[in-house]
Design a protein around this nucleic acid. Structure first.
Length: 590
RNA sequence: UGCCUGGUGGUGUAAUGGUAGCACAGCAGACUCUGACUCUGCUUGUCUAGGUUCGAGUCCUAGCCGGGCAGCCA
């Protein structure tokens, strides 16, 4: 199996639609977009949307725009912008970098004439170009405002003076039609005047709003004269104090798509009911270019995780985790720090497919690709997490026996390194049992076991203190069972890992596990009650000395234990910190 | 007693009127200087009822069950 298994992506209903549009030459170029709101970090659920959009661009020689959907300054913060941008670049690096598209710094929608009609479109360029910056909805506020004026002139929007409470009352309910706002039939002139005054800051928050004039009796709630603009006297992280009215999602999103030349606007299922509004806004403006269309697909929800940004924020603010990039978080930043590769994530996400019905994906599928990926690329090392000392009494103090260890047996041309067997070594507590359970293949009284890459040893003595606690083990090294020695082919049932006590390096190792104890923590009354108290366990481990040179980004397999990577935040020259990405599959278990 | 959507093994999906296949998980075994990897085998599925058809997971009708929709959030 190749490391990159995502090269051939099976089709799905959205790709089928795109393929048909390509065949019809409906659009000059396929343009998709990913429109995050800068109010949190990207998580694995977003990865599906990113990979779908980037993948479609990749397969159709198209573009994939990153656009921040920043129309609500009350909830958004600038620092999320950089983190989100970095996460996206990481996720698609080496896979769809070519398709990721930004705009020239400072570029705004430019006027052009199409078939005698004035049109607006924003320039774009490769995200890799100097000066390129992500698109933002806030960059279109001027244009959006002009379009709103246009709507008013066409009698398709009006200024409403109903309070938020009254607006809700007039809207009716899913089973009862709403009633018309008393302000619904203002003249175009009055609406224009009022809307301009809204913009000028003459009214307080919530005093008035701009509404689409559609149908208060529509069975679709989103067509009951939805709000287009609200008054918010609040600074925006991008536009500062320039505006005190801000467009709402349904109005800003479709037009942002249009201004960027987006052709296929892909979003999640809960927006299905918004689609008629998406189309209504665009149709009402009589725009000259081919219009984008919205298509919806199901979100990705893995088991044992929560996806809601609100709840993820609670974990961060409540200090349940160390931050958005805590290795237990389902965020892209957290998973990267944990040691999960972008390719593994891509394989997992793409493997789950695209459908129009909700489901819950077994996190085991992610764990499987992570192991498969890491098995192929991670260099092997020996490390002992919970040491017990073992003295090989037939070796002299200070004597070292060089052993060759393979760095990666999966490699086509494996390289090797040298380990030193010494009189005192550490082995894993789990690898010794004074009273062994049935089929225990490790070290036990009267038993033999192979030290990986070294030789077979036999256990001679168990040394305990006066209260009966285990102090150390004494054994004999059968040096003629080393590789290349006459007895090297001698078989024993078990092989265990070890490190030289005199050469070992101490390091903090963070053992991560699933963050929740139930498959669907999001469905619990209180997801915090389902937190796994053992999601992080820290040990001071004994590592083979070559690990002193490990740097963040390197991926290792500690043999028989799992996959580990230096922590990008806390591992430095003074102290080494390793994160456990995932354990090896363990069919022994207990 | 509204509107929109959708139902294929435990889970995620494929089959686009023609042998219900794949992956994960699970179980059993082989191999093994990682109880890993790899390999072999096995268990488990078309929501229900009618209809159309030589033939239905797929088309039609009815029902059942699920999800979404009443933010000046996105």
């Amino acid at each position: 199996m190749s490391v990159d298994d995502t090269s051939a992506i099976p089709s799905d209903f959205i790709r089928d639609i795109v393929a048909q549009h390509v065949a019809e030459h409906r659009y000059p170029k396929i343009v998709t977009r990913f429109p995050p709101e800068p109010n949190g970090y990207l998580h694995i659920g977003h990865a599906r949307a990113i990979l779908l959009n980037a993948g479609i661009a990749r397969e159709n020689h198209g573009h994939f725009n990153l656009r921040f959907d920043d129309t609500n300054p009350a909830k958004e913060e600038a620092h999320y912008v950089d983190a989100i941008t970095a996460d996206i670049k990481w996720l698609i690096a080496g896979w769809a970098d070519e398709q990721l598209t930004f705009k020239p710094a400072g570029a705004v929608p430019m006027t052009q004439t199409i078939a005698g009609k004035t049109d607006f479109q924003v320039a774009s360029l490769s995200a890799q170009s100097p000066g390129a910056e992500p698109f933002t909805a806030s960059n279109y506020f001027d244009q959006l405002y002009d379009y709103a004026l246009e709507l008013i002139k066409h009698g398709k929007a009006y200024v409403c003076d109903l309070s938020p409470d009254d607006t809700e009352k007039y809207r009716g309910s899913p089973t009862e039609p709403g009633k018309d706002s008393p302000f619904r039939n203002r003249t175009v002139e009055e609406n224009l005047d009022l809307f301009q005054r809204m913009r000028a800051g003459e009214y307080p928050n919530g005093a008035r709003s701009l509404r689409a004039k559609i149908d208060m009796a529509s069975p679709n709630m989103w067509l009951r004269d939805p709000l287009l603009y609200r008054i918010r006297h609040i600074a925006h992280h991008n536009t500062g104090h320039k505006w005190c009215i801000y467009p709402l999602y349904d109005y800003a999103h479709c037009l942002s798509d249009y201004l960027e030349g987006v052709t296929h606007s892909l979003c999640s299922l809960e927006f299905v009911v918004h689609r008629p509004l998406y189309d209504w806004v665009l149709d009402s403006l009589k725009l000259p270019r081919p219009l984008p269309h919205q298509y919806e697909f199901a979100k990705l929800i893995p088991t044992y995780t929560i996806m809601s940004k609100r709840n993820l924020l609670r974990l961060v603010q409540g200090k349940v985790v160390s931050g958005w990039d805590d290795p237990r978080m389902p965020t892209l930043a957290g998973m990267r720090r944990r040691g999960i590769t972008a390719n593994a994530l891509r394989r997992f996400v793409i493997g789950t497919g695209i459908t129009t019905y909700d489901g819950i994906t077994d996190i085991a599928a992610l764990e499987h690709v992570v192991r498969d990926e890491l098995n192929q690329i991670a260099e092997r090392r020996l490390a002992v997490l919970r040491p017990i000392k073992l003295v090989l009494t037939n070796l002299a103090a200070g004597e070292t026996i060089a052993c060759e260890a393979v760095n990666n047996p999966q490699s086509e041309s494996p390289t090797k390194r040298s380990l030193h067997l010494t009189r005192e070594i550490y082995i894993e507590q789990d690898d010794f049992a004074e009273v062994p359970p049935p089929k225990f293949f490790r070290l036990k009284p009267g038993g033999e076991v192979r030290l990986k890459y070294a030789c077979i040893i036999s256990l001679d003595k168990i040394v305990k203190d006066e209260v009966g606690n285990l102090v150390e083990l004494h054994g004999t090294a059968q040096l003629d069972t080393r590789s290349g020695q006459p007895n090297s082919s001698k078989k024993v049932k078990g092989t265990i890992h070890w490190v030289s006590a005199s050469e070992a390096m101490d390091a903090e190792v963070r053992l991560y596990d699933r963050m929740f104890t139930v498959p669907e923590p999001g469905a619990e009354a209180d997801f915090l009650q389902a937190l796994n108290p053992h999601s992080l366990e820290t040990v001071i481990a004994k590592l083979e000395p070559s690990l002193a040179a490990a740097t963040p980004g390197q991926l290792f397999q500690f043999e028989r234990l799992g996959y580990f990577t230096p922590d990008a935040r806390d591992s430095g020259h003074e102290s080494r910190v390793f994160n456990r990405t995932i354990t090896l599959r363990d069919t022994w278990a207990k």
